[in-house]
Design a protein around this nucleic acid. Structure first.
Length: 256
DNA sequence: ATGGTTGTGAAACAA
């Protein structure tokens, strides 16, 4: 099974790229973040014609997550127990969607950005991660993939210029501790060894052309799933050219 | 410290 995750930065504006990406790499399951659309706004006919089922959540213009699968899409769940809302009803804030696809529980995650270390949103980010960890502890014994935009650079190697990010989110010790906690519990980040390099580059200052990016998109796998990983890659070409998302897709191959 | 770009939806606001 081939599983991918991609912060698409608007599904409607990039539906053609999504369909081409699925075909180009023969992807079975795709987790999307920043879909930026209500479910009823999404153009799904093309995906359905290609044999995919779609589950989407989120109704505001900034967040939204989805899972697209051609190997089954069952037990869809939005959010996780204890997930706090943020200034609006929980359904509009949707940052987590779980679905069972081909025997794997796939969670498409859009971890809160945090904005600034002194912003209340940063506290919300850490709280959200703590509650996710609490829920994820119960999923360790089943094939589970926590995939998506974690908005954390776990090491300095994951930042093009650590000095420039010294007072920014994504690199602070509490965020890194929060990420490491999943690994301490038994989860494994399975893309890094096969697919080094950044997954996100800001639109401005020609960050992509100069490869000044961040590695913030990860596949965090439970032990039964981690043992099935045979390879991974970052589709950097998808980030090139005009009309690209600011994130590149990350693809993981799993043995049957 | 600031500014640079993109998306949504039609002015900010988030990233």
């Amino acid at each position: 099974m081939r599983l991918a995750t991609w912060n698409v930065n608007s599904l409607r504006s990039r539906i053609d790229r999504v369909e081409a990406f699925l075909q180009r790499h023969d992807v079975d399951v795709l987790a999307l973040q920043e879909t930026k659309a209500r479910e009823e706004q999404l153009p799904l006919m093309g995906l359905q014609a290609m044999g995919y089922e779609v589950a989407a959540a989120g109704t505001n213009q900034w967040n939204g997550v989805a899972v697209i699968s051609r190997v089954g899409l069952d037990e869809v769940e939005v959010g996780f127990p204890g997930q706090p809302g943020w200034g609006e009803p929980a359904e509009t804030e949707a940052r987590a969607l779980g679905a069972t696809c081909g025997g794997v529980r796939v969670w498409s995650l859009y971890v809160p950005n945090g904005r600034k270390p002194d912003d209340p949103h940063y506290v919300y980010k850490l709280d959200w991660l703590a509650r996710l960890r609490e829920a994820a502890g119960a999923w360790l014994d089943t094939p589970t993939a926590l995939v998506g935009d974690w908005n954390i650079c776990p090491t300095d190697d994951d930042v093009f210029d650590p000095a420039q990010f010294a007072r920014s989110t994504h690199v602070t010790p509490p965020e890194r501790v929060a990420f490491q906690a999943f690994l301490d519990d038994g989860y494994a980040e399975v893309t890094r060894e096969h697919a080094p390099g950044y997954t996100y580059w800001d639109y401005y200052r020609q960050r992509f052309e100069r490869d000044r990016g961040l590695k913030i998109d990860f596949v965090v796998a439970s032990p039964p799933l981690a043992g099935q990983v045979t390879g991974a890659f970052i589709d950097r070409e998808e980030r090139a050219g005009t009309g690209a998302s600011d994130h590149a897709p990350v693809v993981v191959d799993l043995a049957d």
